[in-house]
Design a protein around this nucleic acid. Structure first.
Length: 556
RNA sequence: GCCCCUGUAGCUCAGAGGACAGAGCAGGAGCCUUCUAAGCUCUUGGUCGGGGGUUCAAAUCCCUCCGGGGGCACCA
């Protein structure tokens, strides 16, 4: 279903007016003049506003308001258009006729939460890789932020017409896994009463003490002191970590389509193959006993090692193979969501994509800034490799998945946010997530109440929508109309937090409508029309909650 | 030293060139015998870190300075 955007209609009409004005000699030719069609902040300025008179003023050499007046004179007939006015410094303001909003209501009420889906993405296939935490410990709140942002982004991209593949890439090979395995083995031995020392650079987290004890309880001393035992400890640890990660992601409502293993790349020889591609294209050389990738050819500050002097691949080598695989699978665009600590890695990865022969602009990296987790004013450390930390799972279990998701989604990825335990778990009006959910529960309650009162609903075609004249009704209809464009905008800008912001505005307009307009009244015509308006609003709000993956309960 | 993010109301944050800079919370004053008051209305509060520049128009773009946060491995 493709939503009609009135802004497109206006753009076409204004272009037509410019052409007509040029033909009549009222204005010089302005075919290539740029202008925007936007929703004015202040409602008094109409539903849509065009700034063409200002952008063309210099070329035309006349005051913007004069130009605007000429454009308005040459405007042809536009369906659903109510009023056109020149205002302020020269804006042309368009107010839509009620008939437009009646169509909006019908589309939303009958189309359900999917009514505002669009083909804005033009079917471009997008792969989104996010979370991608290594299987060496539980997820922390930073992973949670990337996870929620990635998840909401994927839901929005899908809504606006992009086929999306959500992928989790995990490094189940390499030095970090060695350290993890050695640390687990030490904890295991300690659990059995041995005096085992933790390795240098080992993982100090308490969870490994617990896992060592689990391992000891499951296998007793059977894995002590043999190479096979060590290998089994490693495999057990990895599986244990992955199980914990997957369970946490399920709790957080963050599904994945593809789980991509680094080890698979090694097993199939694809890491070497990717390096061979770079080598064939002339970007690989040997020096100081290592194999280097000439990333400086693509603007990186220094070349990077692909194969260490000890013969092992560096971490970037399998990453290059993975990205080669992504583009070979035919995605038009690839989005990686990384924590702020990886920002320095972007030029390298872009260089890799370019070196492999693909347009580096097809790789987008969305950086999420840090999350400072506080509990009663006490900052909580979040390093996987050192010390204690509160896991993402613990946050969800204590705060609840709805509030956790809401808070993590509500801030711009660029903002270093503080997630306050006490504030987020507050079951109070301080908590904006309830504001949205309360609006939904109220909508459900209204429909229930109408039924209890014996209101027999008429088919929408038999309902007179012209009785919807209250300002609160008009405002709610405008908000419903905005849904599709807001999602498209948030998706295109990779800005999920815009959706929580829109959700708040939407809920506000509904709560105001509820307060100002009695829905179930003695007047049958008003009751029928308002109940359909509630249905339309419910479609839109359900869509918003669905995109944020927040529960939409019928009662509170 | 270089790179990234950031500085907007008392607090937490929106605002990717447009009209008088917004929201929530906090502060003040009101609204429930009728559909959920987890709601609504009104109100106090700003040199958009400072200074230059570009533009008809700058919180927004450019330069510069100052203050926070993070990153600069043959670790991932």
């Amino acid at each position: 279903m493709v939503t009609t955007r009135f802004s497109d209609t206006i753009r076409i009409a204004v272009r037509g007016a410019l052409t007509a004005a040029a033909t009549s000699g009222a204005l010089p030719p302005l075919d290539d003049v740029e202008f925007v069609v936007e929703r004015p902040r202040d409602r008094a300025n109409g539903d849509w506003s065009v700034n063409v008179a200002m952008t063309a003023a210099k070329r035309v050499g006349r005051p913007p308001r004069d130009i605007a007046a000429v454009v308005v004179e040459h405007l042809g007939a536009v369906p659903h258009l109510g009023r056109v006015e020149v205002a302020g410094p020269g804006f042309i303001n368009f107010t839509l006729a009620p008939s437009w909003y009646h169509d909006v209501l019908r589309r939303a009420a009958l189309g359900g939460p999917d009514h505002a889906r669009s083909d804005a993405g033009a079917g471009e296939r997008i792969q989104v890789e996010f979370v991608s935490s290594n299987p060496n410990g539980p997820l922390h709140i930073g992973h949670g932020r990337g996870g929620v942002i990635g998840d909401v982004l994927c839901r929005m991209l899908d809504y606006v017409g992009h086929p999306v593949s959500r992928e989790y890439y995990y490094n189940d090979a390499g030095v970090q896994m060695d350290r993890f395995a050695a640390s687990l083995e030490a904890r295991y031995l300690q659990a059995l009463g041995h005096d085992a020392a933790m390795p240098e650079d080992g993982y100090q987290g308490d969870y490994l003490v617990a896992w060592g004890a689990e391992l000891a309880a499951e296998h007793g001393a059977a894995l002590v002191g043999t190479p096979e035992g060590t290998a089994r400890i490693r495999a057990w640890g990895m599986a244990r970590a992955m199980r914990d990660i997957e369970e946490t992601l399920v709790l957080a409502r963050i599904p994945f389509d593809v789980w991509f293993s680094e080890l698979d790349l090694h097993r199939d020889g694809r890491v070497g193959a990717a390096i061979a591609v770079l080598r064939d294209r002339g970007y690989v050389y040997e020096a100081e006993g290592a194999t280097w990738f000439r990333t400086t050819a693509f603007g990186d500050e220094k070349d990077r090692v692909l194969v260490k002097s000890d013969g092992e691949f560096t971490y970037i080598a399998p990453d290059i193979a993975y990205h080669l695989d992504k583009f070979q699978r035919g995605f038009g665009r690839v989005i990686n969501i990384w924590g702020a600590d990886h920002h320095g890695y972007i030029p390298r990865m872009k260089a890799a994509v370019a070196g492999l022969g693909f347009d580096p602009d097809r790789l987008e990296v969305l950086i999420t800034q840090t999350v400072n987790l506080t509990r009663g004013g006490e900052p909580v450390r979040m390093s996987t490799r050192a010390g204690e930390f509160v896991t993402f799972r613990e946050v969800i279990e204590e705060v609840g998945v709805d509030a956790t998701r809401y808070f993590l989604a509500a801030f711009s990825p660029d903002t270093a946010m503080t997630f306050d335990f006490e504030a987020a778990r507050a079951q109070s009006m301080d908590n904006p997530v309830f504001y949205l959910q309360y609006a939904h529960a109220r909508m459900c309650s209204l429909v229930r109440f109408a039924g209890e009162q014996g209101v027999v609903r008429l088919p929408l075609d038999d309902v007179d929508l012209t009785v919807l004249t209250h300002p609160a009704e008009a405002e709610l209809l405008r908000q419903i109309d905005r849904l599709g464009e807001e999602v498209a905008e948030a998706a295109a800008r990779r800005a999920p937090h815009r959706l929580t912001g829109f959700g708040q505005e939407f809920a506000t307009s509904f709560h105001r409508f509820y307060t100002d307009c009695r829905i179930v009244t003695e007047d049958p015509a008003t009751t029928q029309a308002r109940l359909w308006l509630v249905e339309a609003a419910k479609s839109a709000l359900t869509a918003i909650l669905g995109l944020l993956a927040l529960s939409a309960s019928e009662t509170m």
